[in-house]
């Protein structure tokens, strides 16, 4: 009896660790940096700073999470973000009103993302290959639009508003990030659409037999992913006040790292919104803290990559031993 109790206790502890392990690791990282750099890391200013730094990564990773939820990958998100920033900047330079500079690229990306999904669902092409191809196409278009040069001349002041301004001393970017995270958490957890996406990712054949339109829902996941990537690109351009033809490319791998880290927390082995948020936050906090510790950038990448792999291994071990 006693022994039984002990095993249930230890197994529930294990479960707790498995579900919140990544979160604990994040807290641990924060504690370490706070002790090592108490007067620069653990300050309100730096918290606000980090929230702005991670906003791009969170937004683009949310999209990746949606596509992963239906069991696919979108490798074109980096190129999509770059193109989004360039399109918005071009429109702004040509004197279009602000709302058009944002909405038109978003609408275009919605179509591009839907095409990604359509190719995958209609012709049964692996999403890996489809989006790799699409990413190359988008990169080409971006190059054509910019001649490979950064767009920075004649960008109106209003273009920088979303990326640079604050509300109540908090960056607008942070508000947008938080709003989108909550919005997509709600969508994935409390709407029929979210439930269907998870069902498709869980078992496509069973979902089809349950009367779910697998193709349409998958296409929508790709479309939303592209829209989020484009929004990220636009906000990056707004933040910098310029649009580089490769600005989004660097976000692509960290976005998936964040999503994979996220799969190790909250909902085990399932892509989930808050998990992705925590994953992106850990990656952002690491970058921020390691910079403060004056760790050279190349070593930062090594540390970040190692932590992602370690987290996934730990979760697998935890799962097998239960």
């Amino acid at each position: 009896m006693n022994r039984n109790l002990a095993t249930t206790y230890s197994s529930s502890l294990l479960r707790l660790f498995r579900v919140y392990g990544t979160l604990f690791a994040g807290v641990l990282i924060i504690l370490c940096f706070s002790i090592l750099r108490p007067d620069s890391f653990a300050t309100l200013d730096n918290v606000i700073n980090i929230s702005r730094q991670i906003s791009f990564l969170v937004m683009i990773a949310l999209g990746a999470t949606l596509v992963m939820a239906v069991g696919e990958f979108d490798l074109s998100i980096g190129a999509m973000a770059s193109l989004g920033g360039v399109m918005a900047a071009k429109l702004a330079v040509s004197g279009q009103p602000m709302w058009l500079c944002i909405l038109l690229p978003l609408a275009i990306s919605l179509v591009i993302g839907y095409i990604n999904g359509w190719i995958v669902t209609k012709f049964k092409v692996l999403s890996f290959i489809t989006t790799l191809g699409m990413g190359t196409i988008l990169g080409g278009i971006t190059f054509w639009l910019t001649d490979g040069a950064t767009i920075f001349e004649n960008i109106p002041e209003s273009f920088r508003y979303l990326g640079q301004e604050m509300w109540f001393t908090i960056p607008i970017l942070s508000f947008i990030m938080l709003f989108l995270t909550i919005l997509f958490w709600y969508i994935m957890s409390y709407t029929p659409f979210g439930r269907r996406l998870y069902a498709i990712g869980g078992n496509e054949a069973a979902s089809r037999n349950a009367g779910i339109s697998v193709a349409i829902n998958k296409n929508l996941a790709f479309a939303l992913c592209a829209v989020l990537a484009t929004l990220t690109g636009i906000l990056m351009a707004s933040r910098l006040g310029s649009a580089q033809p490769t600005s989004g490319d660097g976000l692509f791998l960290p976005a998936y790292a964040a999503a994979f880290l996220g799969m190790t927390s909250f909902k085990e082995g399932v892509p989930n919104i808050w998990g992705t948020f925590v994953g992106a936050a850990i990656i952002g906090i690491l970058a921020n803290g390691l910079t403060m510790l004056e760790v050279p950038p190349f070593l930062q990448d090594v540390v970040t990559g190692s932590i992602v792999i370690a987290a996934v291994i730990l979760q697998k071990i935890g799962r097998d031993s239960s």
Binding site: Y198, A199, G202, N203, A205, A206, N209, V270
Partner: peptide, 8 residues
Amino acid sequence: GDGLIVDM
């Protein structure tokens, strides 16, 4: 394989 989503 065709009826259930076992993780749900």
